[in-house]
Amino acid sequence: MAHELGSPVVVVRDVEKRFGNYTVLREVSLTVRRGETVCIIGPSGSGKSTLLRCINGLVPISSGSITVGGREVADAKLDVRALRRDVGIVFQQYNLFPHRTALDNVMMAPVIVLHQNPAEVRARAEALLAKVGLADKMASYPGELSGGQQQRVAIARSLAMNPKVMLFDEVTAALDPETKKEVLITIQALAAEGMTCILVTHEMGFARRVADHVYFTDGGVIVEHGTPEAIFSAPTQARTRDFLDKIL
């Protein structure tokens, strides 16, 4: 998808992440510009989820630098909660709060964390749920929704915070093909509207369609990156070719 390239929103520089002696990320660098959609692909265990968690500060990095909107994530003085408000993240397992309705799930963070006016938040939350196709499910509890519906509520919940960037961690991996489509359509619409998105995905067709840039990771390093066309049609690295051969 062609966008005019904006200013960098997320800049990852030479990031290393170790759990004990085990290095999960090594010399990882990437830049995501405003309005850009970046896909990260790679085999299981290659550190994709860890990278996303580092970007919103859920996991501290061992060395290197990550900035979001110009602010250094690893900076001890950084207000980590302010950072997380700027970075929406959606997980594979939705993680909705099961004791609150879909509407409440979307409203909670803006009201509780940002102290915004509940009436205004409510109007926005209703609009967001309508946008993800759940206008008729606002009063439903997560347990009454299908996986795909829960995932769309989770996306609306993140969007309600007006994030600068959205991170998606294999958000369709737990869904069947039918509901998968609803969620992918939602994300594609977001990307088309100009939301900055970083997607970890195993949906190669989808990555090819929506990504401006694709990163292939393996063993904690970025093996190769480029336009979807370049990565999927003419990968230069053997590891990328092996991976794509296996998966496609």
Binding site: R84, N95, L96, F97, M108, A109, R157, S158, M161
Partner: peptide, 8 residues
């Protein structure tokens, strides 16, 4: 994790 990532 969900609450943390929403800034609670």
């Amino acid at each position: 994790e969900a609450a943390d990532s929403l800034g609670y």
